[in-house]
């Protein structure tokens, strides 16, 4: 069970937003993580180095968060089958659909993109339906 965390949620959202605005108006790039990550394959070109640094920042961020009194979850309570199937679908879906929670949900809607609004409504809906099915119809097997 998790409890409603009002202050941390609002604070976290504001920090995400400040980061995305900083990157967009600083170096002109959107904080769409699936796209930045996928295109790490082009990292040999100096104009793409920023991708590596942004991802590195994500990787080392827990050390900074720790000093502020926030930590990562102590364990990932997800079954192996859910990890593999979920990972595959997240990989396929974010590339085919041109974005994930950050790119569509924050940067896209934030720029009032109708395309991103539609994508976000769709992935939120299918995620809610998936959790409903897993919890109510498959809970004895998964």
């Amino acid at each position: 069970m998790t409890q409603l965390t009002i202050l941390d949620s609002i604070l976290g959202g504001l920090v995400l937003s400040i980061s995305a605005l900083f990157m967009l108006f600083g170096i002109g790039k959107l904080s769409g993580i699936s796209g930045i990550f996928y295109n790490l394959k082009n990292i040999k070109s100096p104009s793409e180095y920023w991708r590596g640094l942004f991802i590195l920042g994500l990787v080392i961020s827990p050390f900074f968060a720790h000093f502020l009194g926030f930590s990562l979850p102590s364990s990932i309570d997800v079954s192996w089958s859910a990890i593999i199937i979920g990972g595959l679908l997240v990989g396929i879906g974010t590339r085919v659909g041109s974005g994930c929670t950050s790119g569509h949900g924050i940067c896209g809607i934030g720029r009032l993109s109708v395309r991103s609004l539609v994508a976000t409504i769709i992935f939120m809906s299918t995620a809610v339906i998936t959790v409903f099915i897993v919890n109510n119809l498959l809970s004895s097997t998964v």
Binding site: T2, T5, D8, S9, L11, G12, G13, L14, V15, L16, S17, I18, S19, A20, F22, M23, G26, S31, I33, L53, F54, I55, L56, G57, L58, V59, I60, S61, P62, F64, A65, L68, F70, S71, L72, P73, S102
Partner: peptide, 13 residues
């Protein structure tokens, strides 16, 4: 930006 974004994801859980 990467560090800040990561902190946002951690703080918001």
């Amino acid at each position: 930006s990467g560090i800040l974004f990561g902190i946002g994801l951690i703080v918001s859980q």
